[in-house]
Amino acid sequence: MEIYKFNKENGKRISKFNSDFVMSRIIQTEKATHIGCMHLEENGVIGFHQAVVPQLLLVLNGEGYVCGDKKEYIKVQSGDAVFWEKDEWHETKTDKGLTALVIESEELKPELFMPLVNTCS
């Protein structure tokens, strides 16, 4: 399991075409990619399971805890991105609620776009 940041502080200011915003790059793929939004309410959980393909969880709102194979939980919050390799066991849970996008694809390399802040076994 790896934790990345996609918050505003790790983005790049864009001014081209008279624009004024910050872009935090996340991922680029050429193969089929599935993107979904997960809404975990208070005490919600995405149960302990194996990733079918590499998976990137982007926490948009709220906070919670994630773990990998060893079930050692790490706190995550808005702006954190969690990456699990194919076949890696993992779980996500929250006490207060959490909204996250999930990106699943055979071809995910988040290290090309976001700074790594934590690696967990």
Rank of each mutant, 00 (worst) to 15 (best):
E2S: 11
Y4A: 01
F6C: 02
N7A: 04
N7M: 01
K8R: 11
E9K: 05
N10E: 06
R13K: 13
N18R: 09
D20L: 04
F21L: 15
S24E: 02
R25P: 06
I26K: 02
E30K: 12
H34Y: 09
G36N: 12
C37D: 03
E41C: 00
N43P: 00
G44S: 05
F48M: 13
Q50I: 00
A51D: 09
V52Q: 12
P54K: 05
L56W: 05
L57N: 14
L58T: 03
L58E: 05
N61D: 15
N61C: 08
G62R: 05
E63P: 00
E63L: 03
E63T: 10
E63H: 06
G64W: 07
Y65K: 14
C67N: 10
G68F: 04
K75F: 05
S78W: 01
S78T: 09
G79L: 01
A81L: 08
W84P: 02
W84R: 00
E85T: 05
K86S: 09
E88K: 04
W89Q: 10
E91A: 06
T92L: 15
K93V: 06
T94N: 11
D95A: 13
T99P: 00
L101D: 03
F113H: 09
M114P: 02
P115M: 04
P115V: 02
N118G: 00
C120V: 14
S121I: 06
S121Y: 04
